[in-house]
Design a protein around this nucleic acid. Structure first.
Length: 554
RNA sequence: GCGCCCGUAGCUCAACUGGACAGAGCAUCGGACUUCGGAUCCGAGGGUUGGGGGUUCGAAUCCCUCCGGGCGCGCCA
């Protein structure tokens, strides 16, 4: 639709120029066409005349009128009017919507995904939780955001690599191993002192018990600390992967810090930074020269112990990603890591890399609410709620939908009470119910001996009224919503759109006059069934992009 | 103190990235068809978009400033 309008507008500008009604400069103006939110303003609208007003030195409405007079409308467009301050509004012919509707019905749920990727390669790095404990609710937002972005890219014709990066070389790992060792000794009846920042969770004790089962008391003395670390990492990763599987989240590649350190890429980063005079030595440690990079302060790259901080491998990792030739590199992380990311990008730039392919999607924190009360989430305390527990409590569909039902910039308040409710005020069920209803209509149609012909092309859609064309218009706009969500990395637009589409359907469905199945009027019934098919494809397709089920019965 | 994000209806959040009258859900109040699923629908009240200035045809959106909240400012990640 937008393409059609842009084309005729461009032609109209040229004609108006030939008549001397517009200046030559007008041709270079970008033409923006959008679907107005209020359908009274037509099917498509352009602010072209408003945008040109300044350059042309004429009132917007006069320009709009000149353009309208120069328009030659093709058959698909029935009307072009000047409205409001100078908008050009267009109305499409019913036949246009009929054709689009048939396409949406025939293509199945994939009609919602425009093929805009062109096979370009995208890497999405997300979750990237270090194996120090079970996934938290906050990790859940990360996992669902990253996974859904990956699904969106894959569905729209990109080649996607889903990647999980974790730090297994740093101080935290030592602390983890030591925590396990302390619990292990305790299990053997030899109380030991837990390090100050040690991991206190019950899962540490379970890992320790496992070691006791397998090794008895053999690890009590002179054991390689690595044994404790490895046991912990293996056990915790197994649990993380299980939770991800439950959530419908998967990865293609796991990358770890230790490999980057062992094969010299971290050293290479240090050498390159040093070469450019970006490393200063102080207190026995190596620092990244912050001021030279426009950073607020210096940041440690190599500790005085000679071990790198997390920062240096992270730079090496991003270099690796850039070298792998992705056209788009997405980093998904929480707001607490933003300063770190800024530092990595600054370092990459200083080393001469083009960081344009890298785009960060930074989400704000998640709070849990139950009956209006905030649920405290502390790793140390017993009030700790794991992602696993959350999924068990409310189900995968609800978890995924709720995490996506906010712009990533916004704080997310997860209302457990609402999430548990299997009722209309729960948006997940509202959308799923629309799908189940539609499925039920098709079951009913079968009983009534009505079925859509395999080839939709021959179906007569002229019985559809204006209310039905409104629904069609909404359903057919879905691919543009998806395209926008991908371009701007804003998956939240999809659940919001789905809610609107489902709402419009529910309203339509509830009017007795709109009975889809009408044995007395098979022509009307078939036309409405085609509309129903398109709506069903849209809802199922949209939920599919989110990794949420579209049930036929509830 | 400095940096980033946020502030929209009583609550939780949208607003197509500068467009037309700022919209949904929850909560509150009042209603609905004897046929396709009432997990639905219709209606009502509720707003100076935190305050103030600016930019322009036009601002919730951009700029400045103040107020309030979150996160960060580790030889943790």
């Amino acid at each position: 639709m937008k393409e059609i309008i842009v084309t005729i507008l461009r032609a109209a500008i040229a004609r108006a120029q030939a008549q001397g009604k517009l200046s030559a400069a007008a041709a270079s103006a970008p033409i923006v066409v959008e679907a107005p939110k209020d359908s009274a303003h037509g099917d498509a609208a352009s602010n072209l005349a408003l945008a040109l007003a300044r350059g042309e030195g004429k009132p917007p409405r006069a320009i709009a009128t000149a353009i309208r007079d120069a328009l030659v409308l093709p058959a698909e467009v029935t009307e072009a009017t000047v409205a409001g301050p100078g908008f050009l509004n267009f109305r499409m012919a019913p036949a246009y919507w009929h054709q689009e509707l048939k396409r949406a019905a025939a293509q199945g749920r994939s009609y919602v995904s425009p093929q805009i990727g062109g096979g370009r390669r995208v890497q999405v790095e997300f979750l990237s939780a270090n194996p120090t404990g079970p996934l938290t609710v906050g990790h859940g937002r990360n996992a669902v955001l990253g996974d859904t972005l990956a699904r969106l890219f894959a569905a729209t014709g990109y080649r996607v690599t889903r990647e999980y990066y974790f730090n297994d070389g740093g101080r935290q790992m030592k602390l983890l191993g030591e925590s396990v060792r302390v619990r292990y000794l305790e299990e053997l009846g030899r109380p030991a002192a837990m390090p100050e920042d040690g991991y206190q969770g019950e899962y540490i004790r379970e890992i320790a018990r496992g070691l006791q089962t397998n090794h008895g008391a053999a690890l009590a003395e002179n054991a390689d600390p690595e044994i404790f670390v490895k046991a912990a990492v293996a056990a915790i990763f197994a649990e993380i992967k299980q939770t991800c599987e439950k959530l419908g989240v998967s990865f293609d590649v796991y990358t770890n810090e230790l490999d980057l350190m062992r094969d010299g890429r971290v050293d290479a980063v240090m050498a390159a930074l040093r070469e450019r005079g970006l490393v200063v030595e102080r207190d026995g440690a190596q620092w990244l020269a912050g001021e030279k990079l426009g950073l607020p302060k210096d940041q440690v790259l190599i500790r005085s112990t000679g071990e790198p901080t997390y920062r240096t491998p992270d730079i090496a990792y991003h270099i690796d990603k850039l070298k792998r030739g992705f056209e788009l590199i997405i980093d998904v992380f929480g707001a607490d890591h933003i300063a770190e990311h800024v530092g990595v990008i600054a370092a990459l730039k200083a080393l001469g890399y083009d960081t344009a392919p890298i785009r960060a999607i930074i989400y704000q924190f998640v709070t849990l609410t139950r009956a209006g009360e905030k649920v405290k989430m502390s790793t140390r305390k017993a009030t700790y709620v794991t992602l696993d527990e959350l999924i068990d409590e409310v189900g995968v569909d609800v978890v995924r939908f709720f995490f996506l039902f906010r712009k990533h910039d916004s704080h997310l308040d997860f209302d457990l009470e609402l999430a548990r409710r299997q009722a209309p005020e729960n948006p997940v069920f509202y959308v799923q119910y629309a799908h189940a209803r539609l499925a039920s209509v098709f079951r009913e149609a079968e009983r009534a001996g009505l079925a859509l012909p395999a080839d939709a092309a021959g179906i007569d859609l002229t019985p559809l009224g204006s209310e039905e064309l409104e629904l069609a218009r909404r359903a057919v706009a879905f691919p543009e919503v998806v395209a926008g969500a991908v371009a701007d990395l804003e998956p939240h637009r999809i659940p919001f759109y789905l809610l609107e589409l489902a709402g419009e359907f529910h309203r339509y469905y509830n009017k007795p006059a709109n009975r889809i199945i009408n044995p007395d009027d098979p022509r009307l019934s078939i036309a409405r069934l085609l509309l129903a098919r398109a709506l069903m494809n849209g809802i199922a397709g949209g939920l599919g992009l989110l990794g949420v089920n579209a049930p036929d019965r509830m």
